[in-house]
Amino acid sequence: MQRQGSSGGSAGFRVRAAGGVLLVAHLALVAWITLRPLDVPWVSAANLRPFAGIRADLALGWPQAARCLGGGLALLAPLGVLLPMAGGRLTVSPLADLARTVTAGALLSLGIELLQTGVPGQVVDIDSILLNAVGVAVAHLAVVPAARARLRRRAETRERAALRREDPSQGRTPTIPRVGIAP
């Protein structure tokens, strides 16, 4: 039985399987980047005030701020595409899907930040959670609605082509006219 709203068929399975494999690979890369111990001479204090780290990065100047903020935006941004891809649904509420994807990204980012408390050289930063969630939202909005619309159009085109290819040797199903009841 096929799930309601899924892309169906072997193509849908391949998309979901590819999404799942890419999601696992991306999460492994993120874990390696964020949870490995760093050998640093000193560690700054944890940042628990929202936007304080972003303001400090902006005070560094253009190239350094772009690198720091861009890294925060890009770290989990692929989740904005990979999570819906692994889900494999073509017909879903765009707003609910965005909320679900951003929430999953923010919770994953929170989990990473909490795990970093026990890793030497890594510091908890609340702004990382904010930047990661915004990165997930931007990637989702940039790719997913257009990709779903394209996939829906392809599926509709395939359905229409299948209806046109029906076996003509069978002909139409005969209909029996209704006969009224005699008086």
Rank of each mutant, 00 (worst) to 15 (best):
R3A: 11
G5Y: 00
G9R: 01
G12Y: 14
R16I: 12
A17F: 10
L23A: 02
V24T: 14
A31V: 14
A31G: 00
I33K: 15
R36I: 07
P41C: 02
S44A: 09
N47W: 07
A52E: 05
G53A: 10
I54F: 05
A56G: 03
D57F: 05
L58F: 04
L60I: 09
L69Q: 09
G71H: 10
L76I: 04
G80N: 11
V81L: 15
L90D: 11
V102C: 02
T103N: 10
A104E: 10
A104S: 13
G105N: 14
L107I: 00
L107Q: 11
I112E: 10
L114W: 13
L114I: 06
L114Q: 12
V119L: 00
G121S: 02
L130N: 13
L131C: 10
N132A: 14
G135M: 02
L141S: 09
V143N: 13
V143E: 04
V143F: 07
V144N: 14
A146F: 08
R148A: 08
R152H: 07
R154S: 03
E159W: 06
R160Q: 03
A162F: 07
R164D: 13
E166G: 12
G171Q: 04
R172N: 01
T175Y: 04
R178C: 08
V179P: 05
V179R: 14
A182Y: 02
P183I: 04
